[in-house]
Design a protein around this nucleic acid. Structure first.
Length: 925
RNA sequence: GGGCGGUUAGCUCAGCGGUAGAGCUCUCGCCUUACAAGCGAGCUGUCGUAGGUUCAAAUCCUAUACCGCCCACCA
């Protein structure tokens, strides 16, 4: 099953007969592999019969450059995909891009402006041609940058939200929503981006608290006999932060139970600076405690006022135009045409002069900014297309309830459902040109025509049924997210539900993205998925945190604190970066940039590279006359007694090795450890915990394989032990497989350099096997390690140069193991094991072994003695603690048996060590 | 106003019910023939604070402080 025949074989990027360079140079090997994975992509085979595993890319903006968020997304996706591919799934990593309505239009308009041209000069059609030209030339850089990351995407399935199929999907969606009554056109208060000249959805607005002024104004009553409760005769006071909008006021509102104003309700008051009177009304929405307890109602310029206005049947005249200037007959001539913020100051000045301004004080107010243009959003009343989301949200909520979609980390499940529960209608029309033009037509009477469900692809102005009418198409386009919410299935062929890809690869398995677009994208895909395809679009949502700068701040263009992943690639190599991303992504926590993690990754790649270099040298030495890679492979297969066949599995190789009689303790130990680590890493990968997986693999590879196994294997290798040589190679290759999803470049390169023709990416993921567990080897090698560490420590204590030999006596319960492996211990500790030592000794007591060296005159015994006495006290403490627990009836009665057993073992272990240490100290009286 | 996350070694972070860990930093010694992007030996923590649950708490619960984030129609 790993013989993935649909992946074309190609020459590896390295001539495997050439020596590996001493230091790993990522730049030398990465471009070759990246190029190969781009030009010979990992094509998903819809007919393979293997279980599918699909992840669609969060489509980056076509205008975009790779930033750390993308790098993180795609590293995690590719790691999962590479693992699942090796594990035998039919994997599909579907790449593509989003047309990104506003962003793209803004980019192209800016370029045109440099040439002194506006989009209106060109007209819609020509402008769109220009955008497509721009896309052909400059768009999609990001996909090449992504390829550099080494992603194993299926580039033959690349999609774009405005390509033909996806555009068709968008149209079908709209037609269906319209005829189901979910999509409707209505006059509502919407968010207007004055700079971009388009409406925005709630989500496209960032709230920012800004220091502003709250002004208290006096509105004169028509009936001068009436009085406000505060004693002011003939007026009612209101508070506002937008005095420039008073000209559009339609009422003054107080709370129905507010006794202070009860006698004024029903009266009329005059808007300052005008001669216009508005009624005083009551509404539940008024907060009695806030401000002065009364507010002006301006339905056209405030969402709350709009709702109050609807309840009371108020008119909603506007005094602000689409450019944000004061306009209309209601505005006194002096302010007409003024920009809204300039007008605010002018109005305040006029109110002060007229004596209607009672008070002006500082007030923090949350204002809405367009997330694109950063300009304060203007609420305006406008006729737009909306989608009634509630029923769709309910479908998702039911699905979440049933566990059809799992979020990881789990806590986002609640965030997800809370948002869905409070969902509001979605304004889907945008006053842009770049995007999917809304397939709705209007006749002269304003009647709406939308293509029929039977034939959604037929434009209404081409529909014979309407031939007698003059139809005009809606000029607006859809919100970009109205197409990206279809992404998991529009990319797979929907609305053709019979298409092979859709049937085979939908629903997808995992969605990987940052939690910051949970509402924008994830929740909307859920709703679209359930409503249009009848099922959840993905099983698992894996959310990662935000990538922050070194100070822990969000990266943003305005702050200029962005970090360019491409520079990180140059500086550390892509593998190192991927290592860092995986290492840093734990539990959906935000990630603070830390160059040290990238250095760690670079060092690790180098470490692996050099371990491989060592193995390769030893393999070459052991097989004189070996020239070609085939010879090498054949040799090692023979050495490990595995029948030559297509791609032997790691487990089989290790199992065969284990049967050999020429393995040493270290060989048996590393095989057992490798087996355990394989199980751990695999479990973490299956749980989507990539951080945990890479940590386990890093620690094992560096600390156990490189620092202990390779060192311990050296004597046997020098002695020509073929079992050890085969173990070295098998374990290394096994490690390469485990690390491949995380660091595909260096592992592929090494694997090729070891003589393999078939690239590593298509090999089988190693599985753990109970047969490979060797408790005895683990126990024994631990004793050996303790002895070596103690011997080294003593040499250090004596100030003996590491190269110089030293006579060492090993005693203790496990001393025989050390003696049985004397050559190994002597080699890696650089000591000579002796049966006896005459005279006083410097000694270290460890678990299972006591290590002694002869004391010479140069050592400060007092210091050493002090340390040993501390240790003795520590042993005592440990023994006392353990005995204390064992002496407690509650503990013995309630703790699990293995915990009790562990405490017994501790008493015995520390007891033995204490006894040995006391013996040692006895020689000093 | 509601919700969520964080607080663990000098720094950045894992661990999240059974003897406190990593990388970097720091100290000492090493160019030991895979690797100085390295090797060996060390030093470093009342796991924010206060209660509670438990045989056992960094880990669970309840408060609380401080940082950060998200949501929200107090003009």
């Amino acid at each position: 099953m790993t013989d993935v025949t649909h992946i074309p074989a190609a020459e590896t990027s390295t001539d495997s007969d050439s020596a590996l360079t001493k230091a790993f140079d990522p730049q030398a090997i990465e471009p070759g592999w990246a190029q190969r994975w781009r030009s010979e992509p990992f094509r998903a085979d819809a007919t393979s019969g293997r279980e599918p595993f699909t992840i669609v890319i969060p489509p980056p903006n076509v205008t975009g450059n790779l930033h750390l968020g993308h790098a993180l997304d795609n590293t995690l996706i590719d790691t999962l995909i590479r693992h699942r591919r090796m594990a035998g799934f039919e994997t599909l990593y579907l790449p593509g891009m989003d047309h990104a309505g506003i962003s793209t239009q803004v980019v192209v308009e800016r370029q045109l402006r440099e040439q002194g041209v506006s989009r209106h000069d060109l007209g819609r059609e020509k402008f769109l041609d220009t955008v497509w030209e721009w896309k052909a030339e400059s768009g999609g850089i990001i996909l090449n940058q992504l390829a550099r990351l080494g992603v194993s995407a299926d580039w033959t399935r690349e999609r774009f939200t405005m390509d033909e199929g996806l555009s068709r999907a968008v149209r079908h969606q709209f037609v269906r929503l319209y005829h189901d009554g979910a999509a409707y056109r209505g006059e509502r208060i919407v968010n207007w981006d004055v700079a971009a000249q388009t409406t925005l959805s709630e989500l496209e607005i960032d709230r920012e608290v800004r220091r502003g002024k709250m002004t208290t104004l006096a509105y004169r009553l028509r009936d001068p006999q009436a009085a406000a409760s505060n004693g002011e005769m003939g007026e009612i006071r209101i508070a506002t932060v937008r005095p420039e909008t008073i000209f559009a006021d339609q009422a003054i509102a107080v709370h129905p139970t507010d006794t202070r104003f009860a006698h004024l309700v029903g009266q009329e008051a005059r808007i300052p600076l005008t001669g216009r009177y508005v009624p005083i009304i009551t509404d539940e929405a008024v907060e009695m405690e806030f401000g002065v307890g009364a507010l002006k109602i301006t339905p056209a310029h405030d969402p709350t006022d709009f709702e109050i206005g609807e309840r009371h049947g108020l008119a909603r005249p506007s005094v602000i135009d689409l450019d944000g200037n004061l306009t209309g007959d209601l505005v006194p001539a002096a302010f007409r045409g003024m920009e809204r913020f300039t007008a605010r100051k002018a109005v305040v000045k006029a109110l002060t002069e007229s004596g209607d301004l009672i008070e002006e004080k500082d007030h923090d107010t949350a204002i809405g900014l367009s997330e694109r243009t950063k300009v304060p959003v203007e609420p305006i009343v406008s006729t737009q297309w909306f989608v009634h989301m509630k029923p769709f949200a309910q479908q998702v909520l039911d699905g979440l309830e049933k566990g059809e979609i799992t979020l990881t980390p789990e806590r986002y499940g609640k965030v997800n459902s809370d948002w869905l529960e409070n969902i509001r209608d979605w304004n889907i029309s945008r006053q842009l040109w770049w995007g999917h033009q809304i397939p709705a037509w209007y006749d002269d009477q304003g009647t709406i025509y939308v293509p029929s469900p039977e034939n959604p692809d037929l434009d209404c102005d081409q529909d014979p049924r309407y031939a007698h009418l003059t139809l005009r198409r809606d000029p607006d386009v859809f919100d970009t997210w109205f197409s990206s919410n279809l992404w998991p299935f529009s990319t797979l062929g929907w609305p053709d539900v019979d298409s092979e890809d859709f049937r085979r690869f939908y629903p997808t398995q995992v969605l990987v993205t940052g939690y910051d677009i949970l509402f924008f994208w994830v929740a909307r895909m859920q709703m679209a998925g359930y409503s249009l395809t009848g099922q959840a679009p993905f099983q698992t949502v894996m959310l990662h945190g935000l990538y922050l700068d070194e100070k822990g701040q969000k990266m943003s263009k305005s702050k200029g604190n962005g970090i360019d992943p491409l520079e990180l690639f140059d500086q550390y190599g892509v593998d190192a970066c991927r290592f860092a991303f995986a290492f840093l992504s734990t539990g959906g926590q935000d990630i603070r940039h830390d160059p040290r993690r990238f250095e760690q990754g670079r060092n690790f790649a180098n470490k692996l590279w050099n371990a491989a270099r060592f193995a390769r040298m030893r393999l070459a030495e052991a097989t004189p006359g070996l020239t070609g890679t085939d010879d090498l492979t054949r040799y090692v297969r023979a050495a490990s007694e595995v029948p030559v066949g297509p791609m032997p599995r790691s487990r089989d190789i290790l199992a065969a090795l284990k049967e050999r009689d020429d393995l040493g303790l270290a060989d048996r130990w590393i095989i057992s450890r490798l087996n355990a680590v394989t199980a751990e890493a695999t479990a973490h990968l299956n749980d989507f915990d990539l951080g945990a997986a890479i940590r386990v693999l890093y620690a094992f590879t560096w600390d156990e394989f490189c620092d202990w196994y390779i060192e311990a294997a050296k004597p046997a290798l020098s002695g020509g032990n073929l079992g050890t040589l085969a173990t070295l190679k098998a374990v290394l290759e096994h490690i390469l497989k485990l690390l491949h999803p995380f660091m595909p470049f260096v592992t592929s390169e090494i694997y090729a350099a070891l003589g393999h023709r078939q690239q590593l990416a298509v090999h089988t993921w190693p599985v753990q096997s109970a047969d490979l567990h060797d408790a005895h080897a683990t126990h024994a090698f631990d004793a050996l390690r303790a002895a070596v560490a103690a011997a080294r420590s003593l040499k250090n204590e004596l100030g003996i140069s590491p190269q110089d030999r030293l006579n060492v006596l090993v005693e203790g319960e496990l001393a025989s193991i050390v003696h049985d492996n004397a050559p190994v211990v002597e080699a890696i500790a650089r000591v000579t094991l002796v049966p006896t030592l005459e005279g006083r000794t410097l000694t270290l007591v460890e678990q299972g072994v006591t290590v002694r060296v002869l004391l010479d005159g140069t050592v400060d015994i007092a210091e050493w003695l002090g340390k040993q006495k501390k240790r003795l006290a520590e042993f005592d403490k440990q023994i006392r603690q353990a005995q204390g627990k064992l002496g407690s009836e509650a503990f013995v009665a309630r703790a699990p048996a293995e915990v009790i057993e562990e405490e017994r073992r501790r008493v015995a272990d520390f007891g033995a060590q204490k006894q040995r240490l006391e013996g040692v100290l006895a020689q000093f009286g």
